[in-house]
């Protein structure tokens, strides 16, 4: 309960910071929507050449892209800004001030900053899902919607866990901006349906960086092509990732040595 209240306070601070610069806010909204549209062009170009690629039609692939856009918005809006702040804290040694506060440090750093603007990307992603379903003449059953939502929560948890793992590395290597950059560029592969990838790529994207789980599975669930057992395994995998991430964070924070003092 206390943490819920803290969360609301932190979120409100971020909204206020964003609304402070009104002109920038509107430019930001426009840019966010422009990026979403711009990023769809490669998909339309490729499916302009073929009706199906690796067994996916344009509308089905659009569902994958929609989930990618949604998670990207979450990553850029909620996960990345806070974690970037941690890296800065570690480098300057100011993480002390966070650690001294009477609340869980992981919670505090994870909710320190939100980019409210990314809410608009997320809405665009939802619009894309509706467009694709409309084109497919498909109304998913409540069970399918439920499975897709569950998998979305799992994907969000996974994304957060991966980010925490990346950040934990910051306690060992100081220059970390590039690790975040690497994470971003690998994550970009998630915009394509997982069946496109073969061999080594497939193994990496299923087990190491489970992009398949994050973007392709929810789309499959909505299309009614995902088996219940796969859903269960995916959820279990996500949970395991979160637990490992929490354990690694705990260990890493023990390595913090307040660099500047």
């Amino acid at each position: 309960m206390r943490y819920l209240r803290l969360f609301v306070v932190q979120l409100r601070a971020s909204v206020q910071v964003t609304m402070q610069y009104r002109a920038e806010f509107f430019v930001g909204v426009f840019m966010a929507l422009f990026y979403v549209a711009w990023n769809l062009i490669p998909m339309f170009v490729l499916w302009g050449q073929r009706t199906t690629i690796a067994g996916w039609t344009l509308e089905e692939a659009a569902l994958v892209t929609a989930w990618f856009t949604l998670l990207r918005a979450l990553l850029d809006g909620a996960v990345q800004p806070s974690l970037q702040a941690v890296v800065e804290h570690i480098r300057k040694g100011t993480l002390d001030f966070v650690l001294l506060k009477p609340a869980d440090a992981q919670f505090l750093v994870s909710t320190a900053k939100f980019e409210v603007m990314n809410f608009f990307d997320a809405s665009a992603a939802v619009a894309l899902v509706l467009w694709a379903l409309h084109r497919l003449h498909r109304v998913p059953s409540p069970a399918q919607i439920g499975a897709a939502l569950l998998l979305t929560v799992a994907a969000a948890a996974l994304l957060y866990a991966l980010a925490i793992l990346v950040i934990s590395a910051a306690f060992y290597v100081v220059r970390l901006d590039n690790l975040i950059y690497l994470f971003n560029s690998v994550f970009d592969a998630g915009r394509w349906p997982a069946s496109v990838f073969r061999g080594t790529w497939r193994i990496i994207f299923t087990f190491v960086v489970p992009l398949a789980l994050m973007t392709t599975y929810p789309a499959l669930a909505l299309l009614g092509r995902l088996e219940t057992s796969t859903t269960a395994i995916a959820l279990g995998g996500a949970l395991a990732f979160v637990i490992v991430a929490r354990a690694v964070w705990k260990r890493s924070i023990g390595h913090y040595r307040s660099a500047s003092s």
Partner: peptide, 16 residues
Amino acid sequence: LATTMPLVMLAVMSAM
């Protein structure tokens, strides 16, 4: 290593 984009696109194009 972060320059993975061309390799990902190569995988997509190979599927085609």
